[in-house]
């Protein structure tokens, strides 16, 4: 066991954390509102869209994420190439930073997950809440913003935490897109001297710290939210 390598590579792995977090945050920023809206279309059975959403969710949940990544990474550059050629944009698609692909793939996958999360959270909110809001003169939009969404968030928070942790873990698959995140960076360092065991121990530790911190933060936030709930009970 090469302890010096173990220590050095730890920091190499750590250097991948910002990218992993960036991808996670951007994916969540897109997926949360989008997932919520699509969940609403499912609940209110808006024609066409809710069927499409159902198929979309089924696909994301039914196929391994690595295969989704393969498909996107093989097809999006191709599609972009065609679009660029059509509009005579002189940009080399191979120069596009892989992180953009990462944003797209992970937002795509997380949105589907969140649709289900919000669907079940919203179903726990009594219909009476919306009726009461209307009765006191709020528009539907205001009702959702001030009454429904805050309540749904509290219910959904544990599942959003799980989805976030899963998202962070999924970034480890970024190697398929040459994304310089935690796993890839440490693996590259390990390839030099074949110190795989040390490298993977470091990767393992970094993810452990990262995910437990995220879980801890979420639990704190959930506690804060539940205080809010109890005060209004």
């Amino acid at each position: 066991m090469n302890y010096q390598f173990l220590l050095e590579t730890f920091f190499v792995a750590l250097s991948g954390v910002p990218i992993a977090l960036l991808v996670t945050v951007v994916a969540l920023l897109i997926a949360l509102p989008l997932g919520f809206l699509l969940a609403l279309t499912r609940i209110n059975k808006i024609p066409v869209i809710h069927h499409l959403a159902k198929i979309y969710v089924s696909f994301v949940r039914g196929t391994p994420i690595i295969i989704q990544i393969f498909i996107m990474y093989s097809s999006i550059p191709l599609m972009l190439k065609i679009i660029f050629e059509k509009y005579n944009i002189n940009y080399d698609i191979y120069k596009i930073n892989p992180i953009w692909y990462a944003f797209i793939v992970f937002a795509f996958s997380t949105t589907a997950i969140l649709i289900e999360v919000f669907r079940s959270a919203l179903s726990t909110i009594e219909k009476g809440q919306l009726e009461a809001a209307h009765a006191t003169g709020l528009t539907t939009f205001q009702a959702y913003r001030r009454i429904i969404i805050p309540q749904a968030l509290v219910v959904a928070m544990p599942n959003i935490c799980t989805a976030t942790v899963n998202l962070i873990k999924a970034t480890s698959l970024g190697y398929a897109m040459s994304l310089p995140e935690i796993t890839l960076k440490a693996k590259v360092a390990a390839n030099v001297g074949y110190n795989y065991v040390e490298a993977y121990i470091d990767i393992f530790i970094v993810y452990l710290i990262l995910c437990s911190t995220v879980e801890f933060l979420f639990k704190r936030y959930e506690k804060h939210l539940s205080k809010f709930k109890a005060a209004n009970a």
Partner: peptide, 22 residues
Amino acid sequence: TTIMRCTPSIVLLFLVYYGVPA
């Protein structure tokens, strides 16, 4: 449970594959 929940599958795979023989 916490450790397993926080470890990506691919990392666990390699850890077992390289680590256990080591």
